[in-house]
Design a protein around this nucleic acid. Sequence first.
DNA 1: TTATTATATAAGCAAATACGAATATAAGGT
DNA 2: ACCTTATATTCGTATTTGCTTATATAATAA
Lengths: 114, 114
Amino acid sequence: MEKMYLKVEDAAQVLKLMGDKTRLSIMRFVNVDECCVCELVELLGLSQPAISQHLRKLKDAKLLNEQRKGHWVFYSINKEHPAIEVVQGILDALPNGKQELEELSNNNLRIICD
Amino acid sequence: MEKMYLKVEDAAQVLKLMGDKTRLSIMRFVNVDECCVCELVELLGLSQPAISQHLRKLKDAKLLNEQRKGHWVFYSINKEHPAIEVVQGILDALPNGKQELEELSNNNLRIICD
DNA sequence: TTATTATATAAGCAAATACGAATATAAGGT
DNA sequence: ACCTTATATTCGTATTTGCTTATATAATAA
């Protein structure tokens, strides 16, 4: 199998999106488990519109999948993204969000749907 | 050896810097071989001040080393950077700059100092 | 010294960005 | 139908960004 290269412009777009600490942490969290907006608001300490706007950019770039479950909209990492290996390489170099998500659980702030 | 994680803020800074197609290509080129400013100007088709300003940002972030040789200032990738593995992972996913640098050579536009 | 070449810096500006406030939409419960 | 909760969108704004133009600095050669 021949190695596929990303286009420089496409890679730059992904890196620019991940080059913001809020969005980078969103990716850290959804890399552990899908998250709904209110969980990310809680985890990141920003306003709901701010989080929604970041999520929209990540979704527009196909880095995230969106799935509504009742009241909530859950976001998950898109493992089919052409740059997924680069994305995972980046996230692997960071402390993942597992611990923070567990703290959310302990405070009964996690949303469980199914 | 215990795995060292980057801080989210530090990683975000590196990604933001690489999230610009001009700077990302600068990194592609210096990853092949050290380059002077005028070579990068030629390769990237931007003004000398524009390139200088991009180089300064990369240098300030310690992603690049600077070395003067006579008239010229050569920039090379800093292999000691804490995020170097992430950086290399990104560059490995891109077509490297070898071919474009060879074309420069063929047009006698490469600067050879030592 | 003066001229030339390579690079850096400063100033100004248009475009992009990240945010909050206010408002709109969507879903479920009463 | 109404209310509440979760999310999205719109708008205004302060900040940042990437570039150009003009100028300054650094190194070498004549």
